[in-house]
Design a protein around this nucleic acid. Sequence first.
DNA 1: AAAAACTTGACTATTTTAGTCGGGTATATA
DNA 2: TATATACCCGACTAAAATAGTCAAGTTTTT
Lengths: 140, 140
Amino acid sequence: MKLNTKSRYAVMALADMAVFSSNNAVSLRDISLRQGISLLYLEQIFLRLKKNNIVKSVRGINGGYILVKSPKELKISDILLALDQKVKTIGCKKDSKKSCNGKSTKCITHNFWDELDIHINSFFENKKLSDLLKNREARI
Amino acid sequence: MKLNTKSRYAVMALADMAVFSSNNAVSLRDISLRQGISLLYLEQIFLRLKKNNIVKSVRGINGGYILVKSPKELKISDILLALDQKVKTIGCKKDSKKSCNGKSTKCITHNFWDELDIHINSFFENKKLSDLLKNREARI
DNA sequence: AAAAACTTGACTATTTTAGTCGGGTATATA
DNA sequence: TATATACCCGACTAAAATAGTCAAGTTTTT
Ligand code: FES
Ligand code: FES
């Protein structure tokens, strides 16, 4: 039950932006240096954040990325969604007629996993990027 | 953010036992047939359930496994623990002095992931095996 | 022009996962 | 006591996912 590093770094990088954006674009190079994340990897991550309209880019010198929404409005669930990090704790598709064991009826545990997904998703839905910045004693 | 099949099958198999145990031991063969889980795989899973005192075994003909606790008392978190399925959504160790990025201070997102772990764990802590059996329209 | 910084797809090494295999041991029953 | 059933256990492996790199751009500011 782990979260992948792409999602983790994405949240980390966006939190960094929220702290350091002083109206100008924040370059990936800066985020990379401050947070110790590979620049190459960040590029890959921000590509998807951009495609999903979490950030917008400014090209050229002094370019970088800008948050589309304010940290107060940006839900963590939006970030994870952008990285395909769906919270589907098991493989059984809700809509599909097929159950996890290949039978036509739902298995004995199906509803339980559904509840779990809902439980986790509600956490991400209710957290905003700005929530991460509160009470941080040790920033960076 | 997926749960591995070992944990999933473990919960499934134990739920099956809770339904079909009529005081006698339940054989893995029966569980395998009812739930469509590989017998070989089940053996591996039950080995760990036994080591962690979730089930006890009865050898020989008419043997099988028996739940140590009643379904009402068996927490899902106990089952996951038996399979090393710790809910550590990210790799950063709580106790270790080292942060996720190799620096000595905790990163900006650390507390957030801690909260997430607590949120998920509380779900598993509060659910008992018997909870899975309620309201099941489609059993098996 | 030149440098900073974003753009994009492809590629790869490593790790994890899911599941199998082989060769046991214990015990109830015929 | 033979035998079938069912637990016991470590080692093994194929396939998938992950984490990250590389190469070769394009755009914009100074
Ligand atoms: S049928 Fe959906 S989890 Fe088993
Ligand atoms: S320091 Fe613990 S998650 Fe980054």
